[in-house]
Amino acid sequence: MHADAPASEPAGEPREPRERREPGRPHPRHRAERVRNRRAGAMRRAVALGCASAIMGVSAFGAVAASADDDRSTTATASASPGASNAPADDTISAADVAVDEGPAVTSGLSVAAAPFTGGTQVTVTGEQLDEVASVVVGGTPATIVVADAGQLTFAVPAVSDTALGTAAEVQFADAAGLPVDVEAPAAVVAAGTSVVQPLEGELTGVAEPAVPMEPSTLTLTYTSDPGIDAQVSYVLAYWSSYNSGVYPVIDGYDCANFASQSLIARGWAMDGGWYLDLATGAMSPSWSSSTALRDYLYTRPDRATELGDAQRDLVKVGDIAQFDWDSSGDRDHTAVVTRVEHTATGTKVWVGGHTKDADYWDVDTALATGGGSVTYFSIR
Rank of each mutant, 00 (worst) to 15 (best):
W275N: 01
H343L: 14
A369K: 05
R301I: 00
K349H: 13
T292M: 05
D255C: 01
V341T: 15
Y276E: 13
R267E: 06
I265G: 12
W326N: 09
H334F: 15
G273N: 14
S290C: 12
M284D: 10
N258P: 04
D363W: 10
A367T: 14
A367N: 09
V316F: 11
K317L: 15
D360L: 02
Y297M: 06
K357S: 15
A260W: 07
G268Q: 10
K317F: 14
R301V: 00
H334L: 15
R340A: 02
G282Q: 02
T356E: 02
L277T: 03
S261V: 02
H355L: 12
Q312I: 09
S328V: 06
Q323C: 01
D252N: 10
D303I: 05
Y299E: 03
G354T: 14
V338K: 00
V364G: 03
G309W: 04
A266M: 05
K317A: 15
W326D: 12
T300F: 09
D303G: 12
D303S: 13
A336L: 14
L264Y: 11
G347W: 04
Y254M: 10
V247I: 09
M271C: 11
V364Q: 03
V341C: 08
A266V: 08
W275D: 00
T348Q: 04
S287R: 13
D358N: 15
C256L: 14
Q312N: 14
D314M: 06
G353R: 04
Y248R: 02
G353M: 11
R313F: 10
Y248F: 11
A280R: 11
Y299I: 06
I251M: 06
Q312K: 10
T335W: 12
K357M: 15
L277D: 04
R332V: 08
G319H: 02
T292W: 05
V250E: 01
A257T: 15
T339Q: 02
D278V: 05
I321V: 01
F259V: 04
N258V: 00
T370P: 02
G282M: 08
S261C: 02
D310V: 10
G347V: 08
V250K: 03
M284W: 05
S328H: 06
V316Q: 12
D365Y: 08
R301E: 00
S287D: 13
S329H: 08
L294A: 12
G347F: 03
K357N: 15
K349Q: 15
V316E: 11
L279K: 15
A280E: 14
W351T: 01
W269M: 05
S285H: 07
D333R: 08
A257G: 10
G354I: 14
T292F: 10
V341F: 12
D272A: 05
L308E: 13
R304H: 08
T281C: 02
D331H: 08
A305C: 04
S263V: 07
R301Y: 00
A359F: 10
P249Y: 00
S285D: 13
M284L: 06
A359N: 10
V364E: 05
K357R: 15
A283L: 08
H355E: 10
L298A: 01
T356K: 04
V341A: 07
Y254R: 09
